[in-house]
């Protein structure tokens, strides 16, 4: 074997090993394009499916949003109407509030006046109570004086009674002496003249008889209830009628009966019939008067 052949063999072997190493390295590190293609196809299909799902979901969501939009539009319209109503109500309420505030102010002024009046009345009551206490003290004092005066008066009355008894004795003695004197003077045709005392006689104190005056109320009988012996008359408190008054019922010059008033109104009074006669019974229209 020639040297050239040997060299070529060695070179061929070295180059073969080198190139085969390069080929093996390249093939070992080469990408699997089919796998990548399949992956890309799968990814594409998945993406298409996702896109389809997204379109379907988008349609559903669009419809849903459309319905929701319609609903919200209707709610907005409703709320707008309610807002308008509430605005009107707010105006009314504000007007009522102003009115109420005016009333509150008015009531506050009234309450202030009331408090001032109450304070004045309280002060007046205090003054009145002080006056009452003072008057009670004065009343106590007057009562004491009255008791003292009553005691003194009783003592003086006892003295007066004693003096009256003495006066009676003296008068009896005087009449006895007058009889004796008359008996002594009769035979000579004379009689004793009443002597006037040098000292004027003191009169005994007597109570003053009160002066009376006729009431002179006149009217008519309005109605008669003989069953209950009741009658109503045409005058009342306005004319001066009072409960307990007695009216005489007359018809012409005849006396019919009496009415004792038990209840009085302004223009009318009711009373009980008294002294009713069987022949002459009272009737509506009969005259009544307090004095015959």
């Amino acid at each position: 074997m020639s040297t050239l052949t040997k060299i070529l063999i060695v070179l061929l072997t070295i180059s073969s090993i080198f190139l085969c190493g390069i080929v093996v390295t390249y093939v070992a590190n080469a990408d699997n394009y089919r796998q990548m293609y399949d992956d890309q196809i799968d990814e594409l299909n998945s993406t298409k499916a996702d896109a389809q799902n997204d379109r379907t979901l988008f349609k559903k969501e669009s419809e849903k949003y459309a319905r929701l939009e319609d609903k919200l539009r209707s709610e907005i319209a409703s709320l707008t109407r309610k807002f308008g109503d509430l605005k009107a109500t707010l105006k009314i309420v504000e007007a009522e509030k102003d009115d109420a505030l005016r009333r509150v102010n008015s009531w506050a002024a009234i309450v202030r006046d009331f408090y001032e009046t109450t304070d004045e009345h309280t002060q007046l009551l205090k003054n009145t109570l002080a006056e009452k206490i003072r008057l009670e003290a004065e009343k106590e004092k007057n009562l004491k004086e009255l008791n003292e005066l009553t005691t003194s008066l009783e003592q003086k009355m006892a003295v007066i009674v004693m003096l009256d008894e003495k006066t009676k004795l003296l008068l009896e003695e005087k009449s006895e002496l007058q009889d004796r004197l008359d008996k002594l003077l009769q035979p000579i045709g004379k009689r004793a003249v009443a002597t006037t005392p040098v000292t004027p006689e003191r009169a005994i104190a007597r109570p003053i008889i009160p002066e009376t005056r006729d009431i002179e109320l006149k009217g008519l009988i309005k109605a008669v209830d003989l069953k209950n012996s009741m009658a109503s008359i045409s005058i009342g408190t306005a004319a001066g009628v009072k409960a307990g008054m007695k009216f005489h019922v007359t018809r012409g010059d005849d006396f019919i009966c009496d009415i004792r008033i038990i209840d009085v109104d302004a223009e009318e009074a009711v009373g009980v019939l008294e002294l009713i006669q069987k022949q002459k019974q009272p009737k509506a229209g009969d005259n009544i008067s307090t004095n015959l």
């Binding site: 063999i9 072997t13 093996v24 093939v27």
Partner: peptide, 22 residues
């Protein structure tokens, strides 16, 4: 040199088999 040549042949063959397998 025969052995070296056979080695080179085996290397090329193994490479071809490996590429075919891949």
């Amino acid at each position: 040199y025969t052995v070296i040549l056979a080695l080179a042949f085996c290397v090329v063959l193994a490479t071809a088999v490996f590429v075919a397998y891949k």
